[in-house]
Design a protein around this nucleic acid. Structure first.
Lengths: 231, 231
DNA sequence: CTATTATTAGAGTATATACTCTAGGGAGTC
DNA sequence: GACTCCCTAGAGTATATACTCTAATAATAG
């Protein structure tokens, strides 16, 4: 594998594990067993590494959110969208974690991310429409779809930050992919009231599969105690 | 005013304006017209300043979320809670912006914030219950209240991050308090399906008062275009 | 007034970290 | 061998920033 690609992969790994802010370029180079000079031969600066990783993420999510035009959407589609989006979120979780700072330091990234958000919101709304056509949801006013889509976006993008908050442990990255996916439970909660009766029961039982377990030390001290009890 | 208090106030201002990560202790001292030595006479380190500010925030929000035990809650109460919480969010907005890093660097803060989150979630749930008793909402299963409360929390705490994202401008703090309060629109959207019919119309008209305007340059390039059109 | 304590100034330091610079190795081509 | 091009090493630098140290000054108490 080319050094350039190795740098990207290792950077992503380290960013995800320790956060971008705690990952230096020297650290990346050391972890790869290459010299700082070598790293800077392949990338002008740290921002360029981050930006390139972001573009990968963008492509991935755009791909995940593609919408078939030839048919309405069904429950399977919805779950596939959710699983995919949370997968992407997991693979590039450092982005949402350090977003504020990253956007503040790179105008390109800021503008790209803004447009990316716009595309995601539009896709979510289209998915809603598709699912409504497919009979999953009751028909809703257009403005409500907007507001709902935005809420879905807020829940999805903030779920990991919440997990880290709720987690008692030290600062090491101890969130698991499974825990992340429990965000799907929250999204389904959001959508529940709009389900057609015919689907309600089925969705509810799918939702149960994602119900968050107790988080943290596993005892009564957890933030989620009394919120999401284990079955 | 005591130097110590001036340091806290100025720090809060600078943190809110430029972010904690971009505000150095030397900068704080310079802004106050005092020496770094003086600042460090009053605070052992930067973390201590942040921690003390956080404790103020904690107290404020805990106070806002107090729940009257002698009566059920009404629509006025709900709006008061929302307005208050978003006020607090505004005054200490740097906290939620740089939370990841702050928690990662201070174990005290991490643990306190975890418990704070727990208290907030419990309060939100109690408010729901109070409002249900007051006839505003249909009765709901307990686990649903948990999940709903969590979603409300996610939307509230993530709203500002979203605003900054959606905002096209440069990295300076250009979000206004009014824009922040438009998060109330999103929270009310979340609650709508659970309203009793008797209150639906009234809440909907209150909700309209918070409807987000187009954000950003004010033209068709906005992230929110096609989502939240102006009336 | 004097002794003590609280506060302040301001130069200075230790450390971290993004990034640079020079020298050179290796592989292909003539 | 010599030339070229891509890649790499690694010491080094410029800068930022949290924090320290000493000495001086104000405030207070006896």
């Amino acid at each position: 594998m080319k050094t350039r690609d190795k740098i990207l992969l290792t950077s992503l790994d380290l960013f995800n594990e320790r956060g971008e802010r705690n990952t230096t370029t020297n650290h990346i180079a050391a972890h790869l067993g290459i010299s700082p000079g070598n790293l800077y031969y392949h990338f002008r600066n740290k921002s360029d590494i981050i930006y390139e990783i972001f573009q990968e993420y963008e492509k991935l999510v755009d791909y995940y959110l593609e919408i078939p035009q030839d048919r309405p959407l069904g429950l399977d589609d919805m779950m596939f969208y959710l699983e995919s989006v949370f997968d992407g979120l997991w693979s590039y979780r450092f982005l949402h974690r350090d977003l504020e700072f990253l956007l503040g330091n790179d105008a390109r990234l800021r503008e790209d991310y803004r447009q990316f958000t716009g595309r995601c919101l539009a896709s979510i709304k289209q998915i809603f429409s598709g699912l409504t056509d497919g009979g999953l949801f009751e028909a809703q006013a257009d403005e409500l779809k907007d507001a709902m889509s935005l809420n879905v976006w807020l829940v999805i993008t903030n779920w990991m930050a919440f997990l880290k908050t709720a987690h008692a442990g030290d600062s090491t990255d101890s969130i698991t992919k499974d825990q992340l996916k429990q965000g799907i439970f929250q999204v389904l909660t959001l959508e529940m009231p709009y389900l057609r009766d015919a689907y309600r029961e089925e969705v509810m039982s799918i939702r149960e599969r994602y119900r968050p377990e107790l988080i943290g030390t596993g005892d009564e001290d957890s933030v989620l105690s009394g919120f999401s009890r284990m079955r």
